[in-house]
Structure formats: C-alpha cells, structure tokens
Computed example of a mutant assay.
Amino acid sequence: MGRRYRRRPERLIAGEKAMPTRKHRWSAQVTRGSDALDLESEIFKQDDPRRIARSLKRSAERSRRRKASPYRSAMSMLTFYINRAGSNLPAGRRHVLESAKHSLRRLFHREA
C-alpha cells in the first residue's frame, strides 16, 4: 500500500491577497425561504405564543412540499429558530417561543 499524502494548502506569493471569505448565512436563508413551509413574515417576532403556533400550524398544513407530518414540520421550524438564535436570544423572547411550543402541542393534540 502506498502512502497517502495530505495536500498542502496553497501558499500565497508575496504581495498577493487571500481570497475574501464568504459569510455563510444559510440558517437565516432557511428561515426566510424554507422549502418545506411558507411562513408568515416576521412570525417569530410576535408576542403572542398562540398566534405563532396557529400560524406555524396553518403553514405546515397548507404546505405540499414538506416531507414530514405537519406537526413535525411546524415544531422543527420553531426549534430551528430557537436553536439558531442560541445565547443571543433574550430570556423574554425565549419564554414566548417555548410557550409557542406548548401551544403547538395543544393545537395538534400532542400534549405530554
């Protein structure tokens, strides 16, 4: 068996600039233009958890492109948004969005 060599990164010639780095904002793009759900604009900025849940349910049930059940699609989008924000999400917003999860479970009759 021959040795496997790792390819060395190309070195810059003196005076040459590195390629500009591209910022990947795929998660924001998913929220804006999800292939599975057509979301109401700025739905995650609403203050009423029940309104968020109703909107997600409506979007999930109307969608013909989703791969999972309406409940899973709606819950996945909400969880995705919460996780995407991470530690930048203020406690008040997190509380509203977590309450929206509970409302979504109730709307789909999936109470734990």
Rank of each mutant, 00 (worst) to 15 (best):
R72D: 09
F80R: 03
R110C: 10
I43S: 07
K23Y: 05
G86L: 03
R110Y: 10
Y71P: 07
E40A: 06
K45F: 12
R84Q: 05
H102I: 14
K67M: 03
P9N: 13
E42R: 02
N88Q: 05
P49W: 05
Y81K: 09
A36M: 08
P20V: 14
F44L: 06
E16D: 13
E40D: 07
P20Q: 15
R110Q: 13
S87V: 07
R8A: 07
L39G: 12
K57L: 04
D48N: 14
R66W: 14
H102R: 15
S69G: 10
L107S: 10
D47W: 04
S99E: 15
R11G: 09
R93T: 12
Y81G: 00
A18N: 10
I13C: 12
S103K: 09
P90V: 01
A100D: 05
G2W: 00
R62P: 01
D35K: 11
R110H: 12
M19H: 04
S55T: 08
A91P: 01
F44K: 02
A28Y: 07
D38I: 09
R32I: 08
F80P: 00
A14S: 07
I82K: 02
A18K: 14
R93H: 10
R3H: 09
L56P: 03
M75C: 08
L89F: 07
P90N: 11
I13R: 15
R32V: 08
A14E: 13
R93D: 14
H109F: 01
H95L: 04
H109L: 01
M19E: 12
P70S: 03
G2M: 00
N88A: 09
R62H: 09
R25G: 04
L107P: 06
T31A: 06
S63Q: 14
S76K: 10
I52E: 03
R8G: 00
G86M: 04
S103F: 07
H109N: 08
L56S: 04
S69I: 02
A14Q: 08
R62Y: 02
A68I: 05
G86K: 04
R54N: 12
I82S: 03
F44D: 02
R105I: 03
M19N: 05
L78W: 00
S63I: 14
E42G: 04
E111Q: 15
A28F: 06
A74C: 02
R58G: 06
K23V: 09
A60C: 02
R84Y: 04
R62F: 02
S27M: 01
E40Q: 10
S59V: 00
L56K: 04
A91Q: 05
Y71K: 08
R7I: 11
H95Y: 01
S73K: 01
R7H: 06
S69T: 15
A18P: 03
L104N: 12
D47K: 11
L37V: 07
N83L: 05
T21P: 01
R7E: 09
S69P: 04
E10W: 08
L89A: 13
V30R: 08
S103E: 15
R58V: 09
